[in-house]
């Protein structure tokens, strides 16, 4: 119990002191995971929407595969990206290993299936209602997909938040491809892992509480933006 109290007071003092290292770590976490979500959205939204709208052979198997890949273990993704980006790997010449870029790539791979799978479900439900009317208005396939994505924007925002939550909370992938280098690739989760391994559990838990706080702030902002959008366009 005293551990928890200590963790809580550590978290509060961390936030109040606005430690510059902590701010740097928070900003890098947001930048890496935010970038990963944007990239995952660029791929996952159209991909999920296309699978939601199209009917083709092997579609059911693809949907199963997509849904299953939402549960990809971060460590496995991290290892795959490491092997690709390692100097001895096929993309070693990029020199991306142990940089924030590598972390963005790994988290993008983790988040894209989530975005695509949840988008597929949302768009499939929407297209039941919209597809024939849109076709009768003369909308081409890409136009229909774009329209469905726009119509589903409120539920898709939740999808992106789910992806962001996964990215900002995972440690397995970023610690392998980022290396947890101080001031370069250290993010909230790898900092927590480091303090845990040093046995400084109150500091680790304090950082964890800060992370939870960030998640609440991000989700609160998103919720508020959704409310505004909902009032504006029903």
């Amino acid at each position: 119990m005293s551990d928890l109290t200590a963790a809580f007071s550590t978290a509060v003092s961390l936030i109040l002191s606005l430690d510059s290292d902590l701010v740097e770590i928070i900003l890098l976490s947001l930048r890496v995971s935010g970038s990963a979500v944007v990239l995952a959205a660029l791929v996952g939204l159209p991909l999920g929407a296309a699978i939601g709208v199209l009917r083709f052979r092997g579609r059911r198997a693809l949907v199963v595969l997509l849904n299953a890949s939402m549960g990809l273990p971060p460590v496995v993704v991290g290892l795959l990206v490491y092997l690709m980006l390692s100097r001895s790997g096929p993309l070693g010449w990029l020199g991306l290993l142990f940089t924030p870029g590598a972390m963005v790539i790994a988290q993008t791979l983790l988040v894209t299936p989530i975005v695509a799978a949840l988008t597929r479900q949302a768009i499939e439900d929407l297209s039941e209602e919209y597809d024939e009317p849109l076709r009768s208005l003369g909308a081409s396939f890409p136009q229909r997909v774009a329209t469905l994505l726009y119509e589903g924007r409120l539920s898709l925002a939740t999808t992106l938040l789910a992806g962001f939550g996964r990215a900002i909370a995972e440690v397995g992938a970023v610690i392998i491809v980022g290396g947890n280098i101080a001031h370069v690739t250290r993010v909230m989760t790898t900092a927590i892992a480091l303090e845990t391994s040093r046995g400084d559990l109150p500091l680790a838990l304090g950082l964890g509480l800060v992370l939870v706080g960030i998640a609440i702030v991000v989700n609160g902002c998103a919720q508020w933006m959704q409310e505004v959008a909902r009032r504006a366009a029903a």
Binding site: V38, L39, P100, G101, T147
Partner: peptide, 23 residues
């Protein structure tokens, strides 16, 4: 919807910023 490609490029540029920053 018609502006989507331009918006996409912008978002991609933002997303790729950390990739460039490393150099």
């Amino acid at each position: 919807m018609i502006r989507a490609p331009g918006l996409g490029l912008l978002l991609a540029a933002i997303a790729l910023a950390p990739l460039q920053a490393l150099s």
